[in-house]
Amino acid sequence: MTTLEETPTVLATEQNEQGYREFSLGELHFRRDEYFVYITWPTGSHVMSADAFLRALQRDVAWEFFYGIVNFDGVIGTVNHYGTVDLFAGRYNDSYRKAELDHVENFPTPQIKATFEEMLDDWTNETFDPFAAPRETGSAFGVKNGENRKAITRHRVKAARMVSCTGDEQIRSDETGHPVNEHFVDISQDEPEIIAEPGFEDEVKAFSLFAYLSRSDVTWNPSVVSVCKDSLFCPTTEEYILPIIHGNDRVEWFVQLSDEIHWDVADRETGALRAKVVMRAGDVAAMPANIRHQGYARKRSMLLVWENADPDIPELIATGQTPTYPADF
């Protein structure tokens, strides 16, 4: 038995002319310059804007590849198999599939994670915060210019019972370095009134979720605030565009707590458009398990993402034992 996890080897070059290292995962190669990221594989090549690529990469790394597919755009992305991860080019793109030019490689999670983390670290300049809305960050562009490790390695909130519970994730304040966001200055910062009888201080617990979210310093980053077995409340604050296109491997639910988000919904496999969904405060809607979705929010909004983390679901859906939509009626 080994007590230390083996550190995976990251395949990277020395700095290129623009000061950035180049990375390889199997037969896929990643390179960046002042404006762009270039991805090549044996049967094709692809270019993405460096800021869009880094925003997507940041989510994929922070969420440990999330549930199902994280499409960086219509060509590049990852599929989480919870232990291993597929890295693909064109696999969920109808044209690449038909031309048989798509490419998929599977990696142990620690290997792709270590490579993505180093890429994110090397390619994020000190002026850029990939978690921030465009109005809150400087430029991702230019030749290599410092680092922003503080931004890209933020603490990931993962409550075990509920935020504010004893020994669990705590509420946010100015003191914890979470000032109220400019878009949420009208959100009340009052906390609930709690009267706990002696001996029950650990069980009589409540907090203001709205105040907590008004102090979120990241966008499009669902993180767990309450846990009922496999049922996870993962609220997040959304502004501008979801930097990835999420392909579900299970039904996912949205509860719009404030403001408005527009969703593009497309086929999970091909990317063909299926529906546009507009959600306003109080709306509740499911994202079926056979689609991909991307959201747009003009004003920072509070979205409650609700997940069922049961590890058996992808298999149940893939084998047709559980439907891709939430209810029959």
Binding site: L273, M279, R280, V284, A285
Partner: peptide, 21 residues
């Protein structure tokens, strides 16, 4: 409250189970 909605292109709106609390 002002409910949003679904613009269907190629799907069944029931699959979204869209309501307003």
């Amino acid at each position: 409250y002002t409910k949003g909605g679904i613009e269907v292109i190629d799907d069944d709106p029931k699959h979204y189970a869209f309501s307003n609390m």
